[in-house]
Amino acid sequence: MLHLTDVRKSFTQPDGSELPILDIPEFHVAAGEQAVLVGRSGCGKTTLLHVIAGISRADAGKVRIDDWEITLFSEAECDRFRAQRIGYVFQTFNLLSGFSALENVLLAMRFARGRADKARARQLLKRVGLEHRMTHRPAMLSVGEQQRVAVARALANGPKLLLADEPTANVDAGHQQQVLDLIRETCREENVALVLVTHGAEVAEQFERIDHLEQFNRAGAVA
């Protein structure tokens, strides 16, 4: 369902020269599949997820999700597509601090479809074990709980693809496994394809499919 072909991305450095970050000839994830991408810090994992989600534009190449080639989309189309079909879990949770757990989930629905489904939002929060924390603001939640809200939020609009950017890196050691399990289980339940990036081997080795970004990213070898 996710297909990358010859995706290239480079950043302009302060001295004006171009620094290639991504040069990926081929990358493919099937529907409902769970893939982990491993790479050391700074090798371009976040950049890749941004390109897949349409948050950043690739300099060249194609990103296809199901039958849509999002690299041809306008920015507004990308925004809408991302809202409705892609879930994103950030390394630093990125919950909106002024809003309760429930409202964070509702807002994601609001931005995607213009309206919010309260029943589904509650059900999702219950699923991630936060039925008694719905009206709590992020500041009143533990980091593990915050990341669980973020997972519920990412699944709010029933995406077919979930992108998770080092989702356990900022969670305390005691809860990392819990968060990881939650992501994998919920994706399985909702038949969502998962692309999880990490620099940690202990997370990666739990997956059946492990890809090393540095191996198939030609730019990574240069950097």
């Binding site: 989600a53 948050i55 920015e75 507004a76 925004d79 809408r80 991302r82 809202a83 409705q84 994103y88 950030f90 990125n94 909106l96 601090s97 807002l107 994601a108 931005f111 995607a112 939020r153 609009n157």
Partner: peptide, 16 residues
């Protein structure tokens, strides 16, 4: 700026 970026990442358009 960060909060706005998060909203955008969640799918809110520039005009939103």
């Amino acid at each position: 700026r960060h909060e706005i970026a998060v909203m955008r990442a969640l799918g809110a358009g520039r005009t939103t």
